[in-house]
């Protein structure tokens, strides 16, 4: 028996919005520790890694490890039926081929449930090696989304360059070039509004605007985003989901021919 009750169905909806551009379907792995999802997009350019801790749920019970393969467009349809203040309870029997979502309004005046068919997905689990990153940049998630959106107008790629002076996002295209530089801020009492740079080595890497834009769909989940960069390894874009877990995206860089 699997049962997980989340106080805010809106949070799960935001998670779905943040991954459904990249993935058509995905396996949710449920264990005592919580719910995890790890999947590459079809082109094998990006990887989504979601971790929702069991203690972030109001109620969590997982008698046996369970993998639930779901079509994310179908799952979005289900969550479109929930109210913004609803709680959601996710239930599945062991070895079931369906999962049930129950939405409850705050005062119990409306309760709805939706049963969805599960899919058998042949997904491999990947081990992600520990990396000593050259630069770790924390910045407001809204600022990152704004920069990616602005620069995407001009080119297909964004170069992220980090030195001890700050971080620079650059693009070039047919009509010209664009650069946005952010200096480290000293607003330490408001960490989620600050730009914090932890640099071991300067680094400069090129990434696809299209993928970065998809990652910024996670902006409503967190005020802050962390970018971890190192030569010859994927970029990590990490959003902490308050009291619940995290959503990380890995993106292979573009390389000179």
């Amino acid at each position: 028996m699997f049962e997980a009750r989340l106080a805010s169905s809106a949070t799960f909806k935001k998670v779905l919005d943040a991954i459904k551009d990249l993935l058509n379907e995905a396996s949710f792995d449920c264990s005592d520790a919580g719910i995890q999802l790890q999947a590459m997009d079809n082109s094998h350019v990006s990887l989504v890694s979601l971790n929702l801790k069991s203690d972030g749920f109001e109620k969590y019970r997982c008698d046996r490890n369970l993998t639930m393969g779901m079509n994310l467009a179908s799952l979005s349809k289900v969550f479109r039926c929930s109210g913004s203040d609803d709680t959601v309870t996710i239930k599945a029997q062991d070895d079931a081929d369906t999962v049930t979502f129950m939405f409850e309004a705050k005062k119990q005046e409306k309760i709805s449930d939706y049963e969805m068919k599960l899919m058998n997905l042949d997904q491999e689990h990947l081990g992600i090696p520990e990396t000593e990153f050259s630069c770790i940049i924390k910045l407001p998630s809204g600022e990152f989304a704004r920069i990616v959106r602005d620069l995407s107008q001009f080119g297909e790629s964004i170069v992220i360059s980090c030195t001890k002076e700050g971080v620079k996002f650059s693009t070039q295209g047919d009509i010209g070039t664009g650069n946005v530089k952010l200096a480290q801020t000293n607003n330490f009492d408001k960490e989620d509004q600050s730009v914090i740079i932890d640099m071991q080595e300067p680094v400069s890497l090129t990434f696809s605007c299209e993928y970065l834009n998809s990652f910024t769909k996670a902006t409503p989940l967190s005020n802050q985003v962390t970018l971890s960069l190192c030569d010859n390894v994927p970029l990590v874009v990490e959003y902490q989901i308050p009291d619940l877990g995290h959503l990380k995206y890995y993106l292979a860089p573009k390389i000179e021919e």
């Binding site: 350019v45 090696p129 994927p234 890995y250 292979a252 860089p253 390389i255």
Partner: peptide
């Protein structure tokens, strides 16, 4: 010009 690298090879299949 640059080409898009893929993630294969960065991670190990468990």
């Amino acid at each position: 010009t640059s080409t898009q690298a893929r993630l294969d090879g960065f991670f190990t299949v468990l």
